[in-house]
């Protein structure tokens, strides 16, 4: 993820990503992923530029971005922590883990800690159900996560 300071930087990056993806069949999803991978989120200010390139209205782009849980329209913290809330993890105490995370981080889901270190998200299954409860920190999965393990992950992310 790059830290794009100015609006010009952002527009240039967007332009490059758009020309790279716009000719794919069904280009919108790969393009939105590329934007989020590079910029960290899909800025609402990008909708018109995307729409022009793909012959879509701003409302259509907005509709797609907001339909999918994965896409976010605001800058996340330096790390994203996803706690699995699905059944298998519930059977191994994920509810307590969720409560613990919210308390330690002093945030609710979709919020970012005051030091900008961690954005907390809910997730519905990480495919690690044999080792529930599971948590994902950025792109890494953790299994059989205890409250202490979570504390260690948080400490590491904040360091």
């Amino acid at each position: 993820m790059q830290d794009l300071q100015s609006k010009q930087d952002l527009d240039a990056k967007l332009g490059a990503l758009i020309s790279e993806h716009q000719h794919m069949p069904g280009a919108l999803m790969p393009l939105l992923h590329a934007i989020q991978d590079n910029i960290g989120y899909v800025p609402e200010s990008s909708y018109s530029q995307i729409g022009r390139a793909l012959s879509l209205s701003v409302a259509e782009v907005h509709g797609v971005v907001t339909f999918y849980h994965h896409f976010r329209t605001h800058k996340p913290g330096r790390h994203v922590m996803q706690i699995c809330r699905a059944e298998s993890c519930q059977s191994m105490g994920s509810e307590a883990l969720e409560a613990h995370a919210k308390k330690c981080l002093n945030v609710d889901y979709h919020q970012t800690t005051s030091d900008d270190a961690i954005t907390l998200e809910a997730v519905y299954c990480l495919g690690n159900c044999a080792l529930s409860p599971a948590v994902m920190m950025d792109e890494e999965v953790y299994g059989r996560v205890s409250a202490e393990d979570l504390d260690a992950l948080i400490a590491e992310a904040k360091a």
């Binding site: 699905a86 059944e87 298998s88 993890c89 519905y124 299954c125 495919g127 690690n128 159900c129 044999a130």
Partner: peptide, 11 residues
């Protein structure tokens, strides 16, 4: 898309 909780064979 393997969305079901409790499944990981596709993965």
């Amino acid at each position: 898309d393997e969305g079901d909780s409790g499944t990981f064979s596709d993965r």
